[in-house]
Design a protein around this nucleic acid. Structure first.
Ligand code: MN
Ligand code: MN
Ligand code: MN
Ligand code: MN
Lengths: 153, 153
DNA sequence: TACAACATGTAGCCTTGGCTAAACTTTGAC
DNA sequence: GTCAAAGTTTAGCCAAGGCTACATGTTGTA
């Protein structure tokens, strides 16, 4: 480790979290990230199905700001994950599991936006930030958010 | 688009954000994600340098819960980005730019954790969730957080 | 001083999530 | 009914961020 370094700096050491603890936290973050995209897709597909009756690759792509080819590939991943089905040239549909996820994700999205707005964050910033934040909010934290909002009446 | 579908569902349409608006939001989220890892690395390297005088690949890897090979590759990316330097077998060091980023990131991390705790989120959940949330909090939202915390005294 | 233990670096593999280009279907306007 | 426009699919490329395996370097201790 470098005993010299240890002696030189060790005494003034700040308290870092234990290695294992920190590793677990970062691991959670990584796993949240790997599901974030799928969550946004099912939420969006649910919205499109609700509002227009179909969720076509091009529409999805435009709303996400990616190419249609990217959307098609991600829809494949949704299928592999058992969250969606797709009929050729008819767009995407959600499985039971996909609908359940979409519902949870939509509720969570709303809650995060509402909380941010309650704290005085302007609407557009709240919506934009929530799109990323939502995927990293645990059940525990979500409950605290709901509690706080309830306390405001 | 399918006129039948449009007629069947269009009337009960829910109000989605405009396509461009939604695309911009998702784009911001994507770009935040691409910098998230670099932010965590510079923050961790700064912490390790402070507490032990050196930031070696193996230590970084253990704290992140990844293999040392992964850490080495990411340190290369930090170098490419002008955030860090590394002397063979002496670990990583931050450039001026890296130190500046680390400072900003540390302040933001603190603020997010403090806010979550102020809302009643238990410490460990607050720390774990903050590790992901922090990367998606805009300056605007950060100010609102600070404001709220100040209002609590 | 030698050497075993440990740290480092490198190579090669995989998945995810972007992209463009080109071929193919569907659809709607005439 | 035709056919061009619009949408879909597929293929092939790239970078990021994981991994394991292996070769090489350093270092504390016997
Ligand atoms: Mn989102
Ligand atoms: Mn969302
Ligand atoms: Mn983080
Ligand atoms: Mn952090």
């Amino acid at each position: 480790m470098g005993e010299a370094a240890k002696r030189r700096h060790g005494d003034a050491a700040e308290k870092l979290p234990a290695e294992g603890t920190q590793a677990r936290r970062f691991g959670k973050t990584r796993s949240a990230q790997s599901t974030a995209l799928l969550e946004d897709y099912v939420e969006l597909i649910a919205d499109l199905l609700m509002s227009s009756g179909e969720a076509r690759p091009t529409d999805i792509a435009r709303r996400l700001g990616v190419s249609h080819a990217t959307a098609v590939k991600t829809i494949s991943r949704l299928k592999r994950a058992g969250l969606a089905t797709a009929r050729p040239y008819r767009g995407a549909f959600l499985t039971e599991k996909g609908r359940a996820l979409a519902d949870r994700v939509r509720v969570r999205h709303r809650l995060v936006v509402d909380l941010l707005r309650a704290l005085g964050v302007p609407t557009e910033a709240a919506e934009a930030d929530a799109e990323g934040i939502e995927h990293h909010v645990s059940e525990t934290t979500l409950k605290a958010f709901a509690q706080y909002l309830k306390s405001l009446g």
